[in-house]
């Protein structure tokens, strides 16, 4: 499915592999269980690694592995289920994670800006999604009243203007 970054559809070099499939050379997103099980063996791998973190697992569970991970994929099982927002914030703030945070599942454009402000980098959007609608959704509100985990924003509380890339 298409991948959205900075309001544009971008190429997705990442491959998601199942629990028992052989690892490709390409950047690979692993299920959490496999990452944990094969952590030692994967330490020697050169290609970029990512993990799909289920909504009910705290980022703390992968904290020791984060240094090896270039991508963490979060999921909204339904757009009403906002656990990924807290996972993203925890990754950025508690664990200082600087890699890609990708959000998939049932995401609607009206959530895009908030996801970015919680530290997400990219969103997996439905086939045929109009990037213009998503881009507009991240620009529609240009003021925030809270601290944000998005990079480049000043560390101040309460009102200020947002800067959209």
């Amino acid at each position: 499915m298409p991948l959205l970054e900075d309001g544009r559809i971008v190429d997705d070099p990442w491959v998601t592999v199942a629990d028992d499939a052989p690892l490709p050379e390409a950047p690979t997103i692993l299920p959490l269980a496999r990452l944990q099980r094969e952590a030692a063996a994967l330490a020697g791998r050169n290609g970029p690694l990512g993990v799909a973190l289920p909504p009910d697992v705290a980022p703390e569970a992968i904290a020791p592995l984060l240094g090896r991970l270039a991508l963490v994929e979060l999921t909204l099982p339904s757009f009403r289920d906002g656990r990924a927002f807290t996972q993203a914030r925890a990754l950025r703030e508690h664990h200082g994670y600087t890699g890609e945070i990708r959000v998939g599942g049932h995401v609607i454009p009206d959530q895009y800006l908030a996801l970015l402000r919680c530290g997400a980098s990219t969103v997996v959007v439905p086939e045929g999604a109009d990037p213009a609608v998503w881009d507009a959704a991240r620009r529609v509100i240009g003021i925030a009243y809270q601290h944000s985990a998005a990079p480049g924003h000043p560390l101040s509380l309460l009102r200020r203007k947002l800067e959209v890339a």
């Binding site: 906002g82 927002f85 959530q111 800006l113 908030a114 996801l115 509100i141 009243y145 809270q146």
Partner: peptide, 14 residues
């Protein structure tokens, strides 16, 4: 202060 902080809070809207 709570009103401002909670208004469109990015993390606590869902």
């Amino acid at each position: 202060i709570l009103r401002q902080w909670s208004t469109l809070h990015p993390e606590f809207t869902w």
